[in-house]
Nucleic acid binder design. Structure first.
Lengths: 170, 170
DNA sequence: TTCATTATGATATAATGTATCATCTCCGGC
DNA sequence: GCCGGAGATGATACATTATATCATAATGAA
Protein backbone atom coordinates (compact mmCIF):
# COMPACT_ATOMS: atom_id res chain seq x y z
CA UNK A 1 0.00 0.00 0.00
CA UNK A 2 1.15 3.53 -0.71
CA UNK A 3 1.35 6.39 1.75
CA UNK A 4 -1.95 7.58 3.10
CA UNK A 5 -2.72 11.19 2.36
CA UNK A 6 -2.43 13.30 5.46
CA UNK A 7 -0.24 11.00 7.46
CA UNK A 8 2.88 12.11 9.30
CA UNK A 9 5.44 12.08 6.52
CA UNK A 10 8.79 12.92 8.04
CA UNK A 11 10.29 10.44 10.46
CA UNK A 12 10.80 11.83 13.93
CA UNK A 13 14.37 12.69 14.72
CA UNK A 14 14.76 10.28 17.57
CA UNK A 15 13.15 7.23 16.01
CA UNK A 16 14.78 3.82 15.93
CA UNK A 17 16.37 3.99 12.54
CA UNK A 18 18.07 0.63 12.83
CA UNK A 19 14.62 -0.90 13.01
CA UNK A 20 13.57 1.01 9.87
CA UNK A 21 16.52 -0.41 8.03
CA UNK A 22 15.94 -3.92 9.28
CA UNK A 23 12.27 -3.72 8.38
CA UNK A 24 13.02 -2.49 4.89
CA UNK A 25 15.49 -5.30 4.30
CA UNK A 26 13.05 -7.86 5.54
CA UNK A 27 10.22 -6.57 3.37
CA UNK A 28 12.51 -6.52 0.35
CA UNK A 29 13.59 -10.09 1.02
CA UNK A 30 9.99 -11.19 1.24
CA UNK A 31 8.99 -9.43 -1.96
CA UNK A 32 11.96 -10.85 -3.83
CA UNK A 33 11.10 -14.33 -2.63
CA UNK A 34 7.54 -13.97 -3.91
CA UNK A 35 8.74 -12.60 -7.23
CA UNK A 36 11.55 -15.05 -7.76
CA UNK A 37 14.05 -12.20 -7.79
CA UNK A 38 17.49 -12.55 -6.28
CA UNK A 39 18.38 -10.22 -3.46
CA UNK A 40 22.09 -10.98 -3.60
CA UNK A 41 24.53 -9.88 -0.90
CA UNK A 42 25.62 -6.88 -2.96
CA UNK A 43 22.07 -5.76 -3.64
CA UNK A 44 21.15 -6.29 -0.05
CA UNK A 45 24.15 -4.30 1.10
CA UNK A 46 23.37 -1.41 -1.25
CA UNK A 47 19.77 -1.36 -0.09
CA UNK A 48 20.98 -1.35 3.50
CA UNK A 49 23.32 1.58 2.85
CA UNK A 50 20.61 3.56 1.12
CA UNK A 51 18.27 3.03 4.02
CA UNK A 52 20.92 3.65 6.63
CA UNK A 53 21.55 7.12 5.28
CA UNK A 54 19.13 9.69 6.57
CA UNK A 55 19.59 11.93 3.56
CA UNK A 56 19.49 10.85 -0.07
CA UNK A 57 22.79 9.17 -0.82
CA UNK A 58 24.83 9.33 -4.02
CA UNK A 59 26.06 6.27 -5.88
CA UNK A 60 29.69 7.09 -5.15
CA UNK A 61 28.95 7.57 -1.47
CA UNK A 62 27.43 4.11 -1.45
CA UNK A 63 30.51 2.81 -3.21
CA UNK A 64 32.78 4.40 -0.63
CA UNK A 65 30.97 2.63 2.18
CA UNK A 66 31.05 -0.82 0.64
CA UNK A 67 33.58 -3.00 2.44
CA UNK A 68 36.66 -0.84 1.91
CA UNK A 69 39.16 -3.67 2.16
CA UNK A 70 38.06 -7.06 0.93
CA UNK A 71 36.72 -6.83 -2.60
CA UNK A 72 36.62 -3.29 -3.78
CA UNK A 73 33.63 -2.74 -6.02
CA UNK A 74 33.52 -0.60 -9.12
CA UNK A 75 30.93 2.09 -9.90
CA UNK A 76 29.11 -0.27 -12.22
CA UNK A 77 28.56 -2.67 -9.34
CA UNK A 78 26.66 -0.05 -7.40
CA UNK A 79 24.72 1.22 -10.40
CA UNK A 80 23.69 -2.29 -11.31
CA UNK A 81 22.47 -2.94 -7.82
CA UNK A 82 20.59 0.36 -7.83
CA UNK A 83 19.00 -0.51 -11.16
CA UNK A 84 17.74 -3.75 -9.70
CA UNK A 85 16.47 -2.08 -6.55
CA UNK A 86 14.69 0.61 -8.54
CA UNK A 87 13.16 -1.91 -10.92
CA UNK A 88 11.62 -3.62 -7.92
CA UNK A 89 10.56 -0.39 -6.27
CA UNK A 90 12.85 -0.69 -3.25
CA UNK A 91 14.58 2.63 -3.89
CA UNK A 92 13.80 5.80 -5.78
CA UNK A 93 16.17 8.05 -7.59
CA UNK A 94 15.88 11.78 -6.92
CA UNK A 95 17.03 13.32 -10.15
CA UNK A 96 17.13 16.84 -8.82
CA UNK A 97 19.92 15.83 -6.45
CA UNK A 98 21.42 12.82 -8.24
CA UNK A 99 20.86 10.62 -5.25
CA UNK A 100 18.84 7.71 -4.01
CA UNK A 101 16.40 7.06 -1.18
CA UNK A 102 14.71 3.99 0.19
CA UNK A 103 11.09 3.53 -0.75
CA UNK A 104 8.74 3.17 2.17
CA UNK A 105 6.00 1.46 0.18
CA UNK A 106 7.61 -1.08 -2.12
CA UNK A 107 4.73 -3.52 -2.20
CA UNK A 108 2.99 -2.08 -5.21
CA UNK A 109 4.30 0.15 -7.95
CA UNK A 110 3.53 3.82 -7.59
CA UNK A 111 4.76 7.20 -8.69
CA UNK A 112 5.70 9.15 -5.66
CA UNK A 113 6.23 12.78 -4.95
CA UNK A 114 9.04 13.89 -2.69
CA UNK A 115 9.64 16.64 -0.18
CA UNK A 116 13.37 17.21 0.25
CA UNK A 117 14.74 19.31 3.10
CA UNK A 118 17.54 21.51 1.86
CA UNK A 119 19.05 21.72 5.34
CA UNK A 120 19.09 18.26 6.84
CA UNK A 121 18.38 16.28 3.68
CA UNK A 122 15.36 14.51 5.15
CA UNK A 123 13.00 13.19 2.53
CA UNK A 124 9.30 12.51 2.77
CA UNK A 125 7.63 10.36 0.20
CA UNK A 126 4.03 11.14 -0.64
CA UNK A 127 1.47 9.57 -2.89
CA UNK A 128 -1.05 12.38 -3.22
CA UNK A 129 -3.93 11.73 -5.58
CA UNK A 130 -4.63 15.44 -5.82
CA UNK A 131 -1.17 16.15 -7.19
CA UNK A 132 -1.42 13.31 -9.65
CA UNK A 133 -4.85 14.45 -10.70
CA UNK A 134 -3.78 18.05 -11.14
CA UNK A 135 -0.87 16.96 -13.30
CA UNK A 136 -2.99 14.48 -15.18
CA UNK A 137 -5.72 16.93 -16.06
CA UNK A 138 -3.31 19.66 -17.08
CA UNK A 139 -1.49 17.17 -19.28
CA UNK A 140 -4.73 15.91 -20.76
CA UNK A 141 -5.71 19.44 -21.70
CA UNK A 142 -2.45 19.72 -23.59
CA UNK A 143 -3.04 16.39 -25.31
CA UNK A 144 -0.08 14.89 -23.48
CA UNK A 145 0.08 11.25 -22.34
CA UNK A 146 1.73 11.07 -18.93
CA UNK A 147 4.19 8.26 -18.31
CA UNK A 148 6.39 9.18 -15.38
CA UNK A 149 5.93 12.40 -13.48
CA UNK A 150 8.89 13.68 -11.49
CA UNK A 151 7.82 15.76 -8.50
CA UNK A 152 10.62 16.79 -6.15
CA UNK A 153 9.95 19.71 -3.87
CA UNK A 154 12.86 21.46 -2.24
CA UNK A 155 12.25 23.29 1.02
CA UNK A 156 12.51 22.97 4.80
CA UNK A 157 11.23 20.12 6.89
CA UNK A 158 9.26 20.62 10.12
CA UNK A 159 12.21 19.86 12.41
CA UNK A 160 14.53 22.33 10.69
CA UNK A 161 11.84 25.00 10.70
CA UNK A 162 11.44 24.63 14.45
CA UNK A 163 15.15 24.81 15.09
CA UNK A 164 16.44 27.45 12.79
CA UNK A 165 15.78 30.80 11.20
CA UNK A 166 12.32 31.68 9.94
CA UNK A 167 11.37 30.65 6.44
CA UNK A 168 12.54 32.83 3.60
CA UNK A 169 9.90 35.23 2.35
CA UNK A 170 10.17 35.43 -1.41
CA UNK B 1 2.77 37.02 -17.84
CA UNK B 2 2.88 33.31 -17.25
CA UNK B 3 1.20 30.64 -19.34
CA UNK B 4 -2.57 30.70 -19.22
CA UNK B 5 -4.10 27.51 -17.95
CA UNK B 6 -5.71 25.61 -20.77
CA UNK B 7 -3.89 27.20 -23.63
CA UNK B 8 -2.26 25.27 -26.44
CA UNK B 9 1.03 24.31 -24.90
CA UNK B 10 3.06 22.50 -27.51
CA UNK B 11 4.22 24.49 -30.52
CA UNK B 12 2.88 23.21 -33.80
CA UNK B 13 5.38 21.28 -35.83
CA UNK B 14 5.38 23.58 -38.80
CA UNK B 15 5.62 26.89 -36.98
CA UNK B 16 8.17 29.56 -37.80
CA UNK B 17 10.77 28.67 -35.26
CA UNK B 18 13.22 31.29 -36.44
CA UNK B 19 10.67 33.88 -35.41
CA UNK B 20 10.35 32.26 -31.96
CA UNK B 21 14.09 32.51 -31.49
CA UNK B 22 14.24 36.08 -32.71
CA UNK B 23 11.35 37.04 -30.47
CA UNK B 24 12.95 35.44 -27.44
CA UNK B 25 16.22 37.24 -28.07
CA UNK B 26 14.43 40.53 -28.48
CA UNK B 27 12.43 40.11 -25.30
CA UNK B 28 15.56 39.15 -23.38
CA UNK B 29 17.38 42.20 -24.69
CA UNK B 30 14.53 44.44 -23.60
CA UNK B 31 14.35 42.93 -20.14
CA UNK B 32 18.10 43.19 -19.67
CA UNK B 33 18.02 46.82 -20.71
CA UNK B 34 15.32 47.57 -18.15
CA UNK B 35 17.21 45.70 -15.44
CA UNK B 36 20.63 47.08 -16.23
CA UNK B 37 21.89 43.56 -16.93
CA UNK B 38 24.36 42.86 -19.68
CA UNK B 39 23.28 40.51 -22.43
CA UNK B 40 26.79 40.01 -23.77
CA UNK B 41 27.51 38.30 -27.09
CA UNK B 42 28.27 35.00 -25.37
CA UNK B 43 25.11 35.07 -23.29
CA UNK B 44 23.09 36.07 -26.29
CA UNK B 45 24.61 33.28 -28.33
CA UNK B 46 23.89 30.68 -25.65
CA UNK B 47 20.32 31.87 -25.35
CA UNK B 48 19.98 31.66 -29.10
CA UNK B 49 21.31 28.11 -29.17
CA UNK B 50 18.98 27.03 -26.39
CA UNK B 51 16.01 28.47 -28.21
CA UNK B 52 17.11 27.17 -31.59
CA UNK B 53 17.04 23.61 -30.31
CA UNK B 54 13.63 22.05 -30.39
CA UNK B 55 14.45 19.63 -27.62
CA UNK B 56 16.11 20.47 -24.32
CA UNK B 57 19.80 20.94 -25.00
CA UNK B 58 22.74 19.93 -22.82
CA UNK B 59 25.52 22.29 -21.81
CA UNK B 60 28.10 20.39 -23.80
CA UNK B 61 25.91 20.38 -26.87
CA UNK B 62 25.70 24.14 -26.58
CA UNK B 63 29.46 24.26 -26.21
CA UNK B 64 29.92 22.16 -29.33
CA UNK B 65 27.84 24.59 -31.37
CA UNK B 66 29.63 27.71 -30.24
CA UNK B 67 31.82 29.03 -33.06
CA UNK B 68 33.99 25.97 -33.57
CA UNK B 69 36.95 27.81 -35.04
CA UNK B 70 37.60 31.30 -33.73
CA UNK B 71 37.68 31.33 -29.93
CA UNK B 72 36.94 27.94 -28.49
CA UNK B 73 35.04 28.28 -25.26
CA UNK B 74 35.43 26.14 -22.19
CA UNK B 75 32.62 24.41 -20.30
CA UNK B 76 32.69 27.10 -17.65
CA UNK B 77 31.89 29.70 -20.26
CA UNK B 78 28.67 27.97 -21.12
CA UNK B 79 27.74 27.24 -17.52
CA UNK B 80 28.32 30.85 -16.56
CA UNK B 81 26.13 32.05 -19.36
CA UNK B 82 23.44 29.55 -18.37
CA UNK B 83 23.64 30.72 -14.77
CA UNK B 84 23.04 34.27 -15.90
CA UNK B 85 20.18 33.27 -18.17
CA UNK B 86 18.55 31.21 -15.45
CA UNK B 87 18.95 33.95 -12.88
CA UNK B 88 17.04 36.25 -15.19
CA UNK B 89 14.44 33.64 -16.04
CA UNK B 90 15.34 33.32 -19.72
CA UNK B 91 16.00 29.61 -19.53
CA UNK B 92 15.04 26.76 -17.25
CA UNK B 93 17.07 23.73 -16.33
CA UNK B 94 15.34 20.37 -16.55
CA UNK B 95 17.09 18.34 -13.91
CA UNK B 96 15.50 15.06 -14.93
CA UNK B 97 17.33 15.24 -18.25
CA UNK B 98 20.30 17.49 -17.38
CA UNK B 99 19.36 19.94 -20.09
CA UNK B 100 18.08 23.42 -20.67
CA UNK B 101 15.10 24.98 -22.40
CA UNK B 102 14.11 28.52 -23.25
CA UNK B 103 11.50 30.08 -21.02
CA UNK B 104 8.46 31.35 -22.84
CA UNK B 105 7.42 33.75 -20.09
CA UNK B 106 10.51 35.50 -18.80
CA UNK B 107 8.83 38.72 -17.77
CA UNK B 108 8.06 37.72 -14.23
CA UNK B 109 9.52 35.05 -12.04
CA UNK B 110 7.54 31.85 -11.78
CA UNK B 111 7.92 28.18 -10.98
CA UNK B 112 6.92 26.23 -13.98
CA UNK B 113 5.93 22.66 -14.59
CA UNK B 114 7.13 20.85 -17.67
CA UNK B 115 5.77 18.23 -20.02
CA UNK B 116 8.63 16.50 -21.81
CA UNK B 117 8.04 14.25 -24.80
CA UNK B 118 10.23 11.18 -24.58
CA UNK B 119 10.11 10.69 -28.34
CA UNK B 120 10.69 14.04 -29.99
CA UNK B 121 11.93 15.95 -26.96
CA UNK B 122 9.33 18.69 -27.29
CA UNK B 123 8.75 20.55 -24.05
CA UNK B 124 5.66 22.41 -22.90
CA UNK B 125 5.92 24.81 -20.03
CA UNK B 126 2.89 25.22 -17.81
CA UNK B 127 2.05 27.37 -14.86
CA UNK B 128 -0.88 25.53 -13.37
CA UNK B 129 -2.24 26.91 -10.13
CA UNK B 130 -3.96 23.61 -9.39
CA UNK B 131 -0.67 21.74 -9.42
CA UNK B 132 1.01 24.33 -7.25
CA UNK B 133 -1.91 24.30 -4.87
CA UNK B 134 -1.99 20.53 -4.63
CA UNK B 135 1.71 20.47 -3.86
CA UNK B 136 1.42 23.37 -1.46
CA UNK B 137 -1.39 21.87 0.56
CA UNK B 138 0.19 18.43 0.74
CA UNK B 139 3.43 20.05 1.89
CA UNK B 140 1.61 22.17 4.44
CA UNK B 141 -0.03 19.08 5.90
CA UNK B 142 3.43 17.63 6.40
CA UNK B 143 4.66 20.87 7.99
CA UNK B 144 7.01 21.45 5.08
CA UNK B 145 7.89 24.90 3.73
CA UNK B 146 8.07 24.77 -0.06
CA UNK B 147 10.85 26.67 -1.76
CA UNK B 148 11.32 25.31 -5.25
CA UNK B 149 9.14 22.57 -6.63
CA UNK B 150 10.49 20.53 -9.52
CA UNK B 151 7.73 19.13 -11.71
CA UNK B 152 8.89 17.40 -14.88
CA UNK B 153 6.49 15.00 -16.53
CA UNK B 154 7.80 12.51 -19.03
CA UNK B 155 5.41 11.17 -21.65
CA UNK B 156 4.28 11.62 -25.24
CA UNK B 157 3.29 14.85 -26.89
CA UNK B 158 0.18 15.22 -29.06
CA UNK B 159 2.08 15.12 -32.34
CA UNK B 160 3.95 11.91 -31.48
CA UNK B 161 0.74 10.28 -30.26
CA UNK B 162 -0.92 10.97 -33.59
CA UNK B 163 1.99 9.63 -35.57
CA UNK B 164 3.14 6.59 -33.76
CA UNK B 165 2.08 3.56 -31.82
CA UNK B 166 -0.71 3.79 -29.26
CA UNK B 167 0.17 4.86 -25.75
CA UNK B 168 1.55 2.23 -23.42
CA UNK B 169 -1.02 0.76 -21.06
CA UNK B 170 0.63 0.29 -17.69
C1' DT C 1 26.44 -32.84 -14.77
C1' DT C 2 25.75 -29.72 -18.12
C1' DC C 3 24.01 -25.83 -19.88
C1' DA C 4 21.88 -21.39 -20.10
C1' DT C 5 21.00 -17.45 -17.57
C1' DT C 6 22.12 -14.09 -14.50
C1' DA C 7 25.34 -11.60 -11.65
C1' DT C 8 29.78 -9.72 -10.82
C1' DG C 9 34.80 -8.22 -11.77
C1' DA C 10 37.71 -5.28 -14.15
C1' DT C 11 38.98 -1.67 -17.02
C1' DA C 12 38.14 2.16 -19.60
C1' DT C 13 35.66 6.05 -20.89
C1' DA C 14 31.66 9.24 -21.39
C1' DA C 15 28.87 12.99 -19.70
C1' DT C 16 28.02 16.67 -16.62
C1' DG C 17 29.55 20.28 -13.64
C1' DT C 18 33.12 23.31 -10.57
C1' DA C 19 37.28 25.67 -8.81
C1' DT C 20 40.82 28.86 -9.44
C1' DC C 21 43.39 32.49 -10.98
C1' DA C 22 44.83 35.50 -14.67
C1' DT C 23 43.29 38.73 -18.08
C1' DC C 24 40.25 41.60 -20.38
C1' DT C 25 36.34 44.86 -21.12
C1' DC C 26 33.13 48.06 -19.91
C1' DC C 27 31.58 52.09 -17.64
C1' DG C 28 31.52 55.81 -14.27
C1' DG C 29 34.11 59.45 -12.16
C1' DC C 30 37.78 62.53 -12.52
C1' DG D 1 41.27 61.18 -22.23
C1' DC D 2 42.59 58.51 -18.24
C1' DC D 3 42.00 55.71 -14.24
C1' DG D 4 40.06 52.38 -11.29
C1' DG D 5 36.87 49.02 -9.94
C1' DA D 6 33.37 45.67 -11.04
C1' DG D 7 31.90 42.36 -13.85
C1' DA D 8 32.89 39.13 -17.66
C1' DT D 9 35.81 35.92 -20.01
C1' DG D 10 40.02 32.80 -20.89
C1' DA D 11 42.52 28.96 -19.54
C1' DT D 12 43.63 25.05 -17.02
C1' DA D 13 42.68 21.63 -14.02
C1' DC D 14 39.77 18.79 -11.61
C1' DA D 15 35.40 16.77 -9.40
C1' DT D 16 31.24 14.17 -9.80
C1' DT D 17 28.00 11.13 -11.93
C1' DA D 18 27.15 7.45 -15.12
C1' DT D 19 27.88 3.96 -18.91
C1' DA D 20 30.20 0.52 -22.17
C1' DT D 21 32.48 -3.69 -22.82
C1' DC D 22 34.19 -8.05 -22.25
C1' DA D 23 35.78 -11.65 -19.20
C1' DT D 24 34.67 -14.55 -15.29
C1' DA D 25 31.86 -16.52 -11.66
C1' DA D 26 27.71 -18.07 -9.52
C1' DT D 27 23.09 -19.85 -9.76
C1' DG D 28 19.36 -22.74 -10.93
C1' DA D 29 16.95 -25.83 -14.10
C1' DA D 30 16.89 -29.91 -17.26
Amino acid sequence: MAADPGQALFPSRGHDHAACVAGALERAAGICARRGARLTPIRRRVLELVWASHAPIGAYDILARMEPESRRSAPATVYRALDFLMAHGFVHRLSSVNAYVGCGFPDNPHMAQFLICKECGAVAEMDEPRIEQAIGSAAAQAGFAVESPVVEVRGRCPACRKEGAPDARP
